[in-house]
Amino acid sequence: MNAPRATIPIAPAAGSAGGAVAKVPTFDVFTTRKDEIVGWARKFSIFPYPFVTACCGMEFMSVSSTIYDTDRFGAALPRFTPRQSDLMMVVGTITHKQAPVLRRIYEQMCEPKWVMAFGVCATSGGFYDNYAVLQGIDLIIPVDVYIPGCPPRPETVIDGIMQLQDKIARQHHVILKGEF
């Protein structure tokens, strides 16, 4: 279930000054292009599942609203069911009582899925280092981007979304099982 996703090495974009990637006419050209196109489409149409628990929810509401507006990134339209969403934004503290719920909802999401740890409580437990709080959601689910802050300013959240978009763009997107 948690098998690492295969990723292509981070190669400089074709035509950039950074690398000398010879254009070899192999089948890789098609898979690379497919990954770029699918990555482009996926990164600009993120359907978040806002798993909101605590104070970070206030900044989540702010970043989704008019002044900061995640809709510019295609990431505003929440789907409150894991079946239809692809980004789980874990916003706020996750306690041990909430952990089974978080895990279950993560398992109910379909591939491809990403997880964002929004705020320090989701990242590492925050300053609640005690019996009640899970010390970071990456103990129970894999996390793709961590956004620090208590709570993070909306600009930080947007920075995190953009970094996630870069990550999605670089990923290898499996459309069909097996080699294509």
């Binding site: 306690t95 609640y128 009640a132």
Partner: peptide
């Protein structure tokens, strides 16, 4: 579900 142990 958000009991964070404030009093402790």
């Amino acid at each position: 579900y958000l009991h964070r142990g404030f009093e402790k």
